Amino acid sequence: MSKGFTLIELITVILILGIVSVFAVPRLSGTEAFSVMGARDAGLSVARQVQLRAMQQEDPSDRCNALFVTASRMGGSNNTGCQWQNDRSDVVDLSDSQVRISPVQTFYFDLLGRPVSSDTTRLCTNASGCKITFTQSVSAASICLNSEGYFYACD
């Protein structure tokens, strides 16, 4: 009785490791890509949270329930009249990082969660919808928003 692995077993394991590395290595190829994807995922969560809060309000143009996107911050209003506490969960603040957000814009939401402007004109109505992009150097990750209010990670 010989101990060890057959050639077919070794080739199978090497092949599986090769396939896994092709998909895993580019995604984890450094802190830069990780930072951008982490910021995008946090932004996606915040966008959905602000949208849900806005859907519970009567006035879609209420600035306290809008999603504000700036170069280093994404989330609910920082207006002191909105009575928010300092430790909020509806904001992604990237001012201490290299990650930047574009384009700068503001989304309001109607009672169905659809994106509208401050005068309640529907937004993101073209075929590609709206896109919010997080970038750092050469890495980028985006959030897309369609006309019906569905936020999702996109390229």
Rank of each mutant, 00 (worst) to 15 (best):
residue 8 I to K: 05
residue 97 S to H: 04
residue 151 F to V: 10
residue 5 F to K: 04
residue 55 M to P: 12
residue 142 S to T: 02
residue 84 W to C: 09
residue 49 Q to E: 02
residue 87 D to G: 00
residue 68 F to C: 02
residue 81 G to Y: 08
residue 104 V to S: 11
residue 94 L to D: 01
residue 77 S to T: 06
residue 14 I to W: 04
residue 137 S to K: 08
residue 111 L to G: 13
residue 78 N to W: 09
residue 20 V to T: 06
residue 28 L to C: 10
residue 55 M to I: 10
residue 37 M to C: 12
residue 117 S to Q: 11
residue 63 R to I: 12
residue 68 F to V: 03
residue 75 G to P: 02
residue 79 N to C: 02
residue 22 V to I: 12
residue 142 S to F: 06
residue 126 N to P: 08
residue 64 C to R: 04
residue 53 R to P: 00
residue 3 K to Y: 13
residue 65 N to L: 01
residue 44 L to S: 09
residue 20 V to N: 00
residue 89 S to Y: 13
residue 131 K to L: 04
residue 107 F to A: 05
residue 22 V to C: 05
residue 118 S to I: 05
residue 73 R to Q: 07
residue 67 L to R: 11
residue 9 E to M: 03
residue 134 F to S: 05
residue 78 N to G: 12
residue 119 D to C: 03
residue 116 V to T: 04
residue 87 D to R: 11
residue 126 N to S: 15
residue 10 L to M: 15
residue 22 V to W: 02
residue 23 F to T: 15
residue 123 L to W: 08
residue 46 V to Q: 00
residue 24 A to M: 13
residue 7 L to E: 10
residue 1 M to A: 13
residue 65 N to C: 02
residue 51 Q to S: 06
residue 132 I to F: 03
residue 52 L to R: 14
residue 20 V to E: 06
residue 111 L to M: 11
residue 56 Q to E: 14
residue 39 A to E: 06
residue 64 C to A: 02
residue 155 D to F: 13
residue 8 I to F: 14
residue 94 L to I: 11
residue 2 S to P: 14
residue 30 G to S: 11
residue 144 C to W: 04
residue 38 G to L: 00
residue 150 Y to H: 14
residue 108 Y to S: 09
residue 86 N to Q: 14
residue 8 I to P: 03
residue 17 L to F: 06
residue 39 A to M: 01
residue 29 S to V: 11
